[in-house]
């Protein structure tokens, strides 16, 4: 056990998986000498050398496409795309090859690889550096989409993702990278990809969030419990695809009310999918319409006004109060 932030926790997971399995390679722009622009891959080049840590040319489509080929050859590439906004350059390779090769080759060439990328707002960045477009990848058959919310689950989930037989999109909430420290165990917790975590049990309402939105959600919970006498249950989704329908349904069947928080655009967002699943599986338990607290369907604003765009504790508290008031 040691206290560390998410950057250190991710670095620890990379270091351990590379030490344990020589097939694991780190690939991306500035991941070697520079240690990554957020320093997640710091020190790996010194430890494992150029044959395991690839500082690549500046070409996202080339990075993902060649990593797929390396995975087909039997390596376990862990790609870093510097910002998730740059993934659009690689969209074709993700869709055509990363997500499809297991199927296209009838199981002969599975693609066991991880694509790590920092996503989300809140770091006062330029355009294309604040997006939260996880819904694209959840919409793509063949991919898994994992989004940790803190150092401890980031550490364990990255281990699980690298060891997963399928391609994993691993979205790292960059606003959380250095936001706080947590006890991180010496060996990963046995978190299975596709399993959500109930981080607080409660009776009145279910709050669902993931990634960077766990922080304002938990802030709201503090306010709700202390100031408003509300007893919320809180679910950290951890995995967008596959999604843990059972945990969601069990919780909402108990509470009857639900608010979902994400920073990505609302339309066809993850909340919409959750609502559909609850509608299919918990309809008779619902006591109120399910509310969404999300980013708006607009381009991520320039950073001087981003705090008004991103969901915060206040707006989550308002949504919870409205949902509880519904009769």
């Amino acid at each position: 056990m040691a206290q560390m932030n998410m950057v250190r926790a991710l670095n620890k997971a990379l270091d351990e998986t590379m030490a344990a399995d020589e097939r694991v390679c780190v690939i991306g722009e500035d991941v070697g000498v520079d240690g990554g622009v957020f320093r997640v891959t710091k020190g790996l080049l010194d430890t494992y050398g150029e044959n395991r840590v690839f500082d690549t040319p500046l070409a996202e489509c080339g990075i993902v496409g060649t990593a797929v080929g390396m995975a087909i050859y039997g390596l376990r590439p862990v790609v870093e795309i510097q910002f998730s906004g740059f993934m659009m350059q690689a969209f074709d390779q993700i869709e055509q090859n990363m997500a499809r090769f297991r199927r296209r080759s009838r199981g002969r060439f599975p693609v066991s690889m991880v694509l790590r990328t920092p996503y989300g707002g809140g770091i006062r960045a330029v355009e294309h550096h604040s997006e939260s477009r996880e819904a694209y990848w959840a919409h793509t058959p063949g991919l898994k989409v994992v989004i940790p919310s803190g150092p401890r689950n980031a550490y364990s989930l990255l281990h699980a993702s690298i060891n997963d037989p399928d391609p994993v999109i691993f979205y790292e909430p960059k606003a959380v990278y250095r936001a706080f420290r947590e006890e991180v165990p010496d060996v990963p917790d046995p978190i299975e990809i596709g399993t959500a975590q109930v981080v607080r049990e409660g009776a009145d309402i279910t709050l669902v969030a993931y990634g960077a939105m766990m922080r304002p959600t938990l802030e709201a919970v503090e306010d709700l419990t202390e100031m408003h006498g509300v007893d919320p249950e809180v679910i950290d989704l951890l995995s967008i695809s596959p999604m843990d329908t059972d945990t969601l349904v069990t919780s909402v069947s108990k509470t009857g009310r639900c608010v979902i928080v994400h920073e990505g655009p609302r339309t066809c967002g993850i909340a919409a999918e959750i609502i559909a699943r609850l509608n299919e599986n918990a309809f008779e338990h619902l006591l109120a319409p399910i509310k969404r607290v999300t980013g708006y369907d607009i381009h991520f604003p320039f950073f001087q006004v981003e705090k008004h765009f991103l969901p915060d504790a206040d707006i989550i508290v308002d949504a919870v109060k409205e949902t509880l008031a519904y009769e």
Partner: peptide, 19 residues
């Protein structure tokens, strides 16, 4: 998709060289 196999082929070759 035209040309989409070429980065993958290159990746296989990179894997061969890596090994």
């Amino acid at each position: 998709v035209i040309g989409s196999q070429v980065p993958v082929a290159t990746g296989v070759a990179m894997g061969i060289r890596q090994r």
